[in-house]
């Protein structure tokens, strides 16, 4: 019998949502939450012997969290560890990836997790574990379990996996040879026809990510510079007049702070659905430091705090959307003569 330990977050362990995101690592015997579907999927070939869970904020904010989690896993002497799936939850994805990578490195046993393609955990950990492609929300749990179960068994048995495309996982970057059905030129013609028709096609070698922007020059004279504030932390005027979504935001907001000395819980709040909002709602300056910058403006340290701040919700928002908003914001900032930007994220 293959012994499995399952790692999940506080939410899937049934311990609560964001308000419990600071929960330290704990362990229970057997399975809970998504573990039930996994365990059923193994049809007796494998068994989840224990489930380790931890709050997402706790995991990401406490360096020692991974060691505690690893200790709890090691005690169970598993053959393989399943983490998540984390779908498009960024902090959960990072936690799953961190644990899965540590399992391979420290325990030298296989691990597997699942994420949506835009989860930052994918780029961070795809070379260090097997990350199965999932949908962007827990609605994709059934599909995720279905694709993760056979891969888990193969990994546990030490069998070779098929190609990332065939088995539905993100390429680990380790190149493996194979014989295709068609010769290369035929595959090139097929690919070109698809590309010309605007149909999806799969490149055989994804270019390494060199998607970097050259750093802009430093600001020379801070005392005369206009500084703008931008945040993905979802700070909005109370009541969220533009109805920015708490997750997968479809828009961004631009709000006037002329004459405002400091943000306040009475007039601002966060629309972000991915973190505990209490601290930000009590004092929104904790996410968007208007108060400090206004002081600095008065003291002549900076030239001016830009009249508008821009805001959106980073939670589960597609990279492509975020990119689109930022392009628009960038244009306006240039037009308004802004010299530098402080962008805060939660």
């Amino acid at each position: 019998m293959i012994r499995i330990v399952h790692y999940i977050n506080q939410f899937y362990a049934g311990k609560g949502g964001e308000e419990m995101a600071n929960l330290p690592p704990e362990k229970i015997e057997g399975f809970v939450g998504p573990g039930m579907a996994f365990n059923a999927g193994f049809k007796g070939e494998a068994e989840i012997v224990a489930t380790v869970y931890c709050g997402d904020s706790y995991f990401n904010e406490n360096e020692g969290a991974v060691d505690v989690v690893m200790g709890l896993i090691k005690e169970e002497n598993p053959d393989i560890v399943i983490c998540g799936p984390a779908f498009n939850a960024g902090r959960y994805g990072v936690a799953c990836g961190t644990v899965a990578a540590a399992v391979r490195e420290q325990l030298e046993i296989p691990s597997i997790t699942g994420m949506y393609e835009e989860n930052p955990g994918v780029d961070m950990f795809k070379s260090k574990t097997i990350i199965v492609k999932t949908r962007n929300s827990a609605a994709g749990m059934r599909d995720a379990v279905k694709s993760m179960v056979p891969l888990t068994l193969k990994l546990a048995k030490g069998e070779e996996l098929g190609t990332p495309a065939a088995e539905g996982y993100f390429s680990t970057g380790i190149r493996k040879g194979l014989f295709e059905e068609k010769r290369g030129s035929q595959r090139a013609v097929d690919m070109l026809l698809k590309k010309l028709a605007g149909e999806p096609f799969e490149t055989e070698y994804p270019m390494p990510q060199f998607d970097r922007v050259d750093p802009s020059p430093a600001i020379a004279d801070l005392a005369s510079a206009t500084i703008a504030l931008v945040t993905s932390g979802g700070i909005v005027p109370k009541g969220n007049p533009d109805h920015i979504e708490s997750s997968s935001a479809s828009r961004y907001g631009k709000y006037d702070i002329e004459g405002v000395d400091a943000l306040s819980g009475a007039t601002e709040e966060t629309a972000h659905g991915g973190y505990d909002p209490v601290a930000a709602n009590l004092d929104p300056n904790r996410v968007l430091p208007v108060d400090v910058l206004r002081d600095m403006e008065k003291e002549g340290i900076i030239g001016k705090l830009h009249r508008y701040y821009y805001t959106t919700v980073g939670n589960g928002t597609a990279v492509a959307s975020a990119k689109k908003y930022a392009e628009a914001i960038g244009k306006e900032l240039i037009a308004d003569g802004v010299q530098a930007v402080i962008l805060t994220s939660t």
Partner: peptide
Amino acid sequence: VIITDEYAGRDGASQSLADADVAADAVVT
């Protein structure tokens, strides 16, 4: 669509090509 081959090291873990660009989004190897 470009057709190339790879020098990814004996373990397959190195970068396959000496150069890269996002425009090369359709590769046959």
